[in-house]
Design a protein around this nucleic acid. Structure first.
Lengths: 348, 348
DNA sequence: TTGTATGCGTTATCAC
DNA sequence: GTGATAACGCATACAA
């Protein structure tokens, strides 16, 4: 039962004294075949348990109903939601997804790109790794005639379709919210500045401060505070300053914000009264911490759907000239207890 | 730049006045080619930006360096961790993953299986959907000569490689722990009994009760309590019993346990003193709730690796007769505050 | 070591 | 409406 040969269209043809081409036509279900033979063919195909060989079909047709996806980490909420959204749409269209994770490594990202090129996928959807170096591998994708969509973390200078969050706007709203709540010294936890998203969040932070005539204080901006642990380290450092902040915007992630919260709790710093905390991403845990954490929702599942729809509506139809388009999605500030200084009513 | 033809081995051959077969040999890098021509070929391959067509290669070779994965939901912690683990190992081996999600729908699961068969994947790794009906589609996989590995939620009667958690054992330990903590009436929140995992967890529950000479009370076993919302509903029902439980084992998931906790908090029932709570899965939020939730860790990432290694070590090597093997992984009880009735020291 | 010939399973382009 | 045949790009058995 192991190495048996699978039934092909030839087997069906032979059994029915027909030609393989007729079988192919009948199965592809669009060309000219008499209704009678069509039915006969479908019937015996089922009897013989025929399964098409997509490899052969795609080779012949010169294209592949497959889309490649490269993300830094599959099991990170944001990305697994993106994938879920992508999969939802592509499945409906009969397309398959090949998933790769770069593990935040540039070298591995390059390898993933090459594998997907080899696989002749019709599109590559990518969010680049943290140690992103240059975009030659992405240029290569385009040179090979494969569509490219970047999302979230992108190579800025490369002209491709992009689906982005408006990080700057979101960041500005978050900081403005903190200011409106009466916080006076707002610190920023940042991620690697070679990634567009973190640059934009910094810009939003600065813009909000300036808008409200606040000083931009370098000592309140901590560069490498991406994880929970690093968020905790940064918080200890910040709170021991002679003039410590009274709010921390963990623009990198909710995990970082969680690190902030845990340190504050341990040190007996009352959140939100003595310290406001805002995270980024709306991880599910943010609503069940004590207090619950204000954060920014990126609509990740629906973002995944948007990306897929972009492909099917704008890129695939050859009719249109695919002029790279940038879609920007406005994230939403979710206000929770960790920044509600003035309110008595806390949800948690 | 769009519909250009990609360079093939023929292009390289032509340029060097060689035969395509030599190029093929040089690139596949194992056969007999003189070192000189090999280097020459590799050099011009790079110059012409040659990328192998895996479709053609796989068609010719009759197999595919690709593994198909079908999970109920990609963006569920357990499954995305499994996938991350799988991907880690398969990537090292040069294999690709095609990911599909059944969305807990049997009909869709069948479709996914068929697509993967068409793709000629060399192995299908599956955890079946909640409304799993029968295993004919899985039998089909085997009939087509494709390897099949089931994990976590499996079709019990089908003899295939399986990687399982020892749910019964874990469940028994959890309930025993509750009993040892002094809880006297322990309720069980259950999932659909057509899934092996939930049946086993029930059995573990019953075994633990019997072992400690506790009565098995049907009114304390709530059948459909899978989600946070349903967990909450079940809890309200349980706590309003004339003789309510003093502990609840949410064997379905941590989400369900979270529902229990939230209701308890709202009703002013003190956890763990008046109500012990134990969940299942070790979702990241369980350690940051107040109080933190006792739960069971399934080692999901490493389970993914185990599954992949099973394929590469036991199944792929044709030498061995692939006798379906069942690998059982022992989950770990993570004891946290929500069940530590007797202890003064709480971590949270 | 290199070249020749053939086939993997399908679809597309001809004829008839 | 149906059949014959070539081709997609690559790998391999065989001959040279």
């Amino acid at each position: 039962m192991k190495n048996q040969k699978r039934t092909t269209i030839y087997d069906i043809a032979k059994k029915l004294n027909l030609n393989a081409s007729s079988v192919s036509r009948a199965l592809s279900n669009n060309s000219n075949v008499s209704e009678a033979t069509r039915k006969l063919i479908l019937k015996t195909a089922k009897e013989l348990n025929y399964k098409q060989n997509s490899l052969a079909s795609n080779l012949r047709k010169g294209h592949n109903q497959t889309i490649g996806v490269i993300v830094p980490r599959i099991n990170q909420n944001f990305f697994s939601n993106i994938i879920a959204g992508l999969e939802e749409v592509t499945y409906q269209k009969g397309y398959n997804l090949i998933i790769c994770q770069s593990n935040e490594s540039y070298a591995r990202e390059v390898k993933c790109v090459n594998t997907l090129i080899n696989q002749h996928v019709s599109c590559i959807i990518i969010s680049v790794s943290a140690d992103f170096e240059d975009d030659s591998h992405l240029k290569n994708v385009i040179d090979q005639g494969i569509q490219l969509i970047q999302f979230d973390r992108v190579a800025d200078n490369l002209e491709t379709f992009k689906v982005l969050n408006d990080n700057e706007q979101a960041s500005m709203e978050a900081v403005s919210h903190l200011i409106e709540q009466g916080y006076k010294r707002i610190a920023l936890l940042e991620g690697p500045q070679n990634l567009n998203i973190f640059k934009q969040r910094r810009e939003g932070y600065i813009a909000a401060l300036k808008k409200h005539d606040f000083e931009v204080l370098p000592e309140l901006m901590i560069e490498n505070a991406w994880t929970k642990e690093l968020g905790a380290v940064a918080t200890r450092k910040l709170l021991s300053l002679p003039n410590p902040p009274d709010a921390i915007f963990a623009s990198t992630s909710d995990f970082s914000a969680l690190g902030v919260l845990e340190v504050a709790n341990k040190m007996g710093v009352v959140v939100p009264d003595e310290l406001g905390i805002c995270g980024y991403s709306n991880e599910s845990f943010t609503e069940i911490t004590t207090p619950s954490i204000t954060t920014i929702d990126q609509y990740s599942v629906s973002m995944g759907k948007t990306i897929a729809n972009l492909f099917f509506q704008e890129i695939k139809p050859e009719s249109k000239d695919a002029v790279p388009k940038i879609v920007s999605i406005k994230p939403k500030l979710i206000i929770r207890s960790s920044t509600l200084k003035n309110k008595k009513s806390r949800e948690t």
